[in-house]
């Protein structure tokens, strides 16, 4: 069995999302806790701004959970920058055990898998999961300088300026992390950095079908199936593939990359991407919906495109990964 059931189902007791200007202008603007019009969060470099954004998300989530940083058993955090500096600097003043993760856009789910497993098994009673991305730091690292005059193809995705935080606890009133399914690397040979949706969709398909096969569940058993950052292309591909495999996801399926921006009024091509995209959609929008009771059982599958600037220049294909986290309002039952 690849699906891991969490018998003690850790509860998400605190959550927060901090975003930039364009994310705030998008359709989910009311669900975010904080935003900065200048996207610098009072800092002088974009790298510092990203760390600050992550730190703010952690503090807001802690405040909502009525905790202080000292009560955290550990912090699981990641971002897109070289050597994960965004997260390291953000966690610096918390003085808590720290695990830096790299899972590209899947980081928030990767952290949630690890954090909830360790809380479930009683290693920690509480831990924090953090992920962030910043358009400006990601452009500098993976693409072109900010003021460079280039054109983007219709399949390209925009790295979201956003950070999300979960506080997981052994005790709490929910929602609960009931099941997790850590993803495996799936590489179908896509080399185009401007079509990450196509590079990641096979990984999401792999994880989703594995989950449905092992649990015997069907897409309609859930209120929402949410992939992280497949964008327009990946969304279309996964719908095609799932239909061919006999799973009809229409009506319950959406993608964080498509939800973060408005396709009609914002020129974001295939949608959003980056660690912060699904982190902020989950820790902002989805958690608010749990609060309101409009969703009760959600499958969150965050996908990551695990390339580096060097692997791209060497013409290597983009390895994809997809981690699954099932979050429910109830702790037990099916």
């Amino acid at each position: 069995m690849s699906v891991i059931r969490l018998e003690n189902a850790p509860s998400v007791i605190g959550y927060a999302a901090v975003v930039g200007r364009r994310e705030h202008e998008g359709p989910l603007s009311d669900d975010f806790d904080l935003h900065d019009e200048k996207e610098k969060f009072g800092m002088d470099t974009w790298e510092k701004a990203e760390s600050e954004m992550q730190r703010l998300a952690l503090n807001l989530a802690l405040a909502k959970a009525k905790l202080t940083g000292k009560e955290l058993g550990a912090i699981f955090a990641g971002d897109l920058m070289n050597q994960c500096i965004g997260s390291s600097y953000a966690a610096e003043c918390s003085h808590r055990p720290f695990f830096g993760l790299y899972g590209a856009c899947s980081t928030f789910a990767e952290g949630s898998v690890l954090g909830s497993l360790l809380v479930d098994r009683g290693v920690f009673s509480k831990c924090a999961v953090l992920a962030s991305s910043h358009f400006c730091t990601a452009e500098r690292q993976f693409r072109y300088p900010l003021e460079y005059g280039g054109q983007r193809t219709p399949t390209s995705q925009r790295t979201a300026t956003a950070a999300g935080a979960f506080i997981l606890s052994a005790q709490g009133a929910g929602p609960y992390v009931r099941e997790v399914l850590p993803g495996t690397i799936v590489d179908m040979g896509i080399t185009d950095i401007n079509n990450m949706g196509a590079a990641m969709a096979p990984a999401a398909y792999d994880t989703l079908t594995k989950y449905f096969e092992e649990t015997g569940k069907k897409p309609e058993d859930f209120d929402l199936i949410l992939t992280g950052d497949l964008g327009k292309e990946g969304h279309g591909i996964i719908c095609d593939f799932m239909k061919n495999a006999g799973y009809d996801m229409s009506g319950v399926y959406n993608d964080c990359g498509l939800m973060l921006y408005s396709a009609a009024t914002q020129d974001m091509h295939a949608g959003g991407s980056g660690c912060g995209c699904s982190a902020s959609v989950m820790a902002g929008h989805i958690m608010k919906r749990f609060e309101k009771g409009t969703v009760r059982d959600v499958l969150y599958i965050a996908t990551g495109a695990l390339m580096s600037p060097a692997s791209l220049q060497q013409g290597r294909s983009i390895p994809g990964i997809a981690h699954l986290v099932r979050i429910s309002a109830e702790r037990g039952g099916e």
Partner: peptide, 9 residues
């Protein structure tokens, strides 16, 4: 030296 870069729209 004079200007700073800004995020693209």
């Amino acid at each position: 030296l004079i200007f700073r870069s800004k995020p693209r729209d």
